[in-house]
């Protein structure tokens, strides 16, 4: 059974937006927890979240002050910011609305419910008091939807594009988070170093990888090994290597997949040659920049091959 390119496109974006909503909620939530543990001056400042998301120009075009309030509003409730939780959830819903037929029946209901919740509560959850409960609800609802798809979606084209969307978005977010972590922490004043493990633990938490890291690498958190873990651990489902493997499996079931497979293989090889501990922060940053370009290229290849083929 084949699938309309337009439907595939929407399924893919539905997943990217759902993943984005969850990941952004995670990022804000873990930073929110972190900030309470670190004395003023030793923290990274809320702007770090803007740097992670490459959203500074967009933010400053609309807000004057990079206050906690403004930044959280921008990332959570601002429906004009395509990176915000509220925007992503609404966009996911619009994409599901027109693809209901190929998804398990409960998908629409669940996504719609999440949308109604976010629309109702986002604005009220910018202040510290309600913030965490709101973010947790977004995270757990997103996980429920992912679980629903994972357990009930037939392993057909709908599943393949759903998977591709999630994995590409996740790779993008993971690489952003480690990049900023490495850059910020390795370059700053050594007298704050005592807080670094806290910050690394927060970043790991934002990637849902703290527990796994402790079990696999050990309880001591150190920049190089954290980056190595989230990029290259073969077993952790949110690591980049793992995501690449998932993408390869998804793409294998599709016709005309040569370009996409080649690109995924390129990314895998590049990653296998990386040894974080042996390079400088600058070199690491250069690597990630490069890798992000490869992720974008993969997205372009997927779009060109399956979403807007021959006219």
């Amino acid at each position: 059974m084949t699938m309309l390119s337009r439907v595939a496109d929407r399924l893919y974006w539905k997943s990217r937006y759902l993943e984005r909503a969850e990941d952004t909620a995670r990022l804000v939530s873990s930073y929110h927890m972190l900030i309470m543990d670190i004395p003023r001056g030793a923290d990274l400042g809320w702007e770090v979240l803007l740097r992670i998301l490459d959203a500074e120009p967009q933010f400053y075009s609309r807000y004057r002050v990079a206050s906690e309030q403004n930044i959280v509003k921008f990332l959570v409730a601002d429906t004009d910011n395509p990176g915000s939780v509220a925007y992503a959830v609404r966009a996911a819903r619009e994409n599901v609305r027109t693809t209901r037929d190929v998804l398990p029946e409960e998908t629409w209901e669940q996504v719609n419910e999440l949308h109604l919740f976010v629309r109702e509560a986002a604005e009220k959850s910018i202040g510290r008091r309600n913030r965490l409960a709101f973010l947790n609800e977004v995270i757990s609802h997103s996980q429920m939807i992912s679980g629903l798809l994972q357990t009930t979606l037939s392993r057909d084209h709908a599943y393949r594009f759903t998977l591709l969307g999630h994995l590409i978005e996740r790779c993008d977010m993971t690489t952003r988070v480690v990049d900023v972590g490495v850059m910020e922490l390795m370059e700053r004043d050594a007298r704050f170093a005592v807080f670094d493990p806290l910050i690394w633990s927060s970043l790991l938490q934002s990637l849902s990888a703290l527990g796994a890291y402790r079990r696999v690498v050990g309880p001591l958190l150190e920049g190089g090994s954290v980056a190595e873990f989230v990029l290259k651990d073969r077993e952790h489902p949110r690591s980049v290597v793992y995501c690449l493997r998932g993408m390869r499996d998804a793409v294998k079931g599709l016709a005309r997949n040569e370009d996409a497979l080649r690109q995924i293989e390129r990314m895998r090889r590049k990653l296998s040659r990386l040894h974080v501990e042996q390079i400088s922060p600058d070199e690491f940053h250069g690597f990630i920049d490069n890798f992000q370009l490869l992720i974008n290229e993969l997205h372009e290849i997927v779009s060109d091959t399956w979403f807007r083929p021959e006219t």
Binding site: L4, A8, H157, A255
Partner: peptide, 26 residues
């Protein structure tokens, strides 16, 4: 049946109508 919108369809040089699918024109 497939639920299609205008841009999902195209008419080829052979005057046949095709829908754009992930497996190519059908």
């Amino acid at each position: 049946a497939e639920l299609v919108e205008g841009p999902d369809l195209m008419v080829g040089d052979d005057d046949c109508v095709y829908m754009r699918t992930v497996d190519g024109p059908m």
